[in-house]
Design a protein around this nucleic acid. Structure first.
Length: 400
DNA sequence: CCTCCACAGGAACTGATGGCGT
DNA sequence: ACGCCATCAGTTCCTGTGGAGG
């Protein structure tokens, strides 16, 4: 029997790998051909043509569930246009930004600015009024005579953010061209929510929603084709079992046809198979991968919780009952044990809703007549999982 | 049929942080 | 040095509510 460490090291050194190109298995990779999306590609190209001719800016809204290839298609079309005009003295600048990556409106504007190559000095990360940031963005476009295309992903999220602060940035964006002497600004909004338009200011809709393109969900066969394409490029030949492939597609199809998920799944399955030094990815690996992705998601989100949210979660585990009142008193006890000031009940209910949003607990509203109204919570993951994720936290060690 | 429980969850506010422009 | 602007976690105050039990 050889030493297991040696065995693994040997295998790694011998370079036997069934994945030959990992990058292709990340969903941000833009494949040569984007399958099943020909008519959408055409539509987007057509609606963006006016900027090529510099006739007028044309804004555009793209709808579709996650993982339907919206972002990839948009990026591909724009980069093609970009290439076409590269030699002419007509610079097109693609600016992509995902609203969910930025927690605030301000952060979003700054990330846009950074891509317009405004540096730390010209655009500080904090301290300015939003209108000031906006002005600087426009100035930059004006000075550089740029034709900027702002791609704003998850624009519904941004719209929500805006409605909270009362700032009408989207409207300002759509009207920006009137303030620009040179250059232009084109907006491409990408949204997961098909109903989001109704929540917008009608003035914004009229200019932003001139053109709309809807991406339909993929069905199982389509996902399978997409996977095949990527597998051909990323894996060595005959290293993915037929049934593993169709299982991947089936699992992803269950989740409203999310191709992104399917690609993730096959990548992780490939990595697991490789670690086992298997010759082939089988459906066993896919199942393991699916489980692992799920657990990883839970664990990382658990670890990133702030202290009080962790305490609340532990309180749910230790409480005598699942109702808010019982959780809160259990939480107060825990606070005493670890010597922290307790937060108000209002804050704790808010935290509970926040945790519920992340899917780690499930709440159900219960009306108990004279005994009032409560929300009863229950963990949707195992208590072991919670303990495992929290055991690194020094302040929590005594109570786990 | 009315009452009244035990909270849910909205709104407005506070105080700390951090950095601008003048 | 000072006022201003924005964000964030948290607080205070509040109104709303389905149905068991009288």
């Amino acid at each position: 029997m050889t030493d297991p460490i040696d065995r693994l090291l040997d295998a790694a050194e011998s370079g036997k790998s069934i994945i030959k190109n990992r990058d292709i298995l990340h969903f941000t990779h833009i494949p040569n051909t984007i399958l099943h999306r020909n008519s959408e590609q055409e539509q987007i190209t057509q609606s963006l043509l006016p900027i090529l001719k510099q006739s007028r800016p044309s804004n555009l809204l793209v709808y579709g569930k996650p993982g339907t290839g919206k972002t990839l298609v948009v990026k591909k079309v724009i980069s093609k246009i970009q290439k076409r005009v590269e030699e002419s003295n007509f610079p097109i600048k693609l600016i992509y930004s995902n609203s969910k990556d930025e927690t605030t409106l301000y952060g979003l504007l700054v990330s846009l600015g950074r891509q317009l190559s405004l540096d730390e000095k010209e655009l500080p990360t904090t301290g300015l009024a939003t209108s000031e940031v906006f002005k600087r963005l426009l100035n930059k476009i004006d000075e550089g005579k740029l034709n900027a295309i702002f791609v704003i992903d998850e624009i519904d999220y941004l719209a929500q953010l805006i409605s909270k602060t009362g700032k009408d940035i989207l409207y300002q964006f759509t009207r920006a061209n009137e303030r620009l002497k040179q250059g232009s600004l084109t907006l491409v909004g990408i949204s997961n929510d098909l109903t989001f338009k109704e929540k917008l200011d009608p003035r914004v809709i009229s200019s932003l929603g001139e053109e709309e393109i809807v991406f339909t969900n993929y069905n199982k066969d389509q996902i399978q084709k997409i996977l095949e394409e990527r597998i051909n490029e990323a894996f060595i030949e005959n290293s993915v079992d037929e049934s593993a492939l169709s299982l991947c597609a089936a699992l992803a199809a269950q989740e409203h046809g999310d191709a992104r998920r399917a690609i993730d799944l096959i990548r992780v399955a490939g990595e697991i198979a490789e670690r086992e030094q298997a010759e082939m990815v089988t459906d066993k690996h896919v199942r393991l991968a699916s489980q692992k992705i799920e657990e990883n998601k839970e664990e990382t989100s658990l670890k990133s919780f702030p202290l009080h949210e962790k305490l609340v979660l532990l309180a749910i585990m230790k409480a005598n009952g699942p109702s808010t009142g019982e959780i809160y008193s259990s939480y107060k006890n825990l606070c005493k044990v670890v010597g922290r000031d307790e937060l108000t009940q209002r804050r704790v209910t808010q935290m509970l809703s926040e945790i519920e949003l992340s899917g780690i607990i499930i709440g159900r509203l219960i009306h108990q007549g004279i005994h009032g109204r409560t929300k009863k919570y229950k963990l949707s993951i195992t208590t072991e999982m919670v303990k495992k994720s929290f055991k690194d936290d020094l302040t929590l060690q005594d109570i786990i």
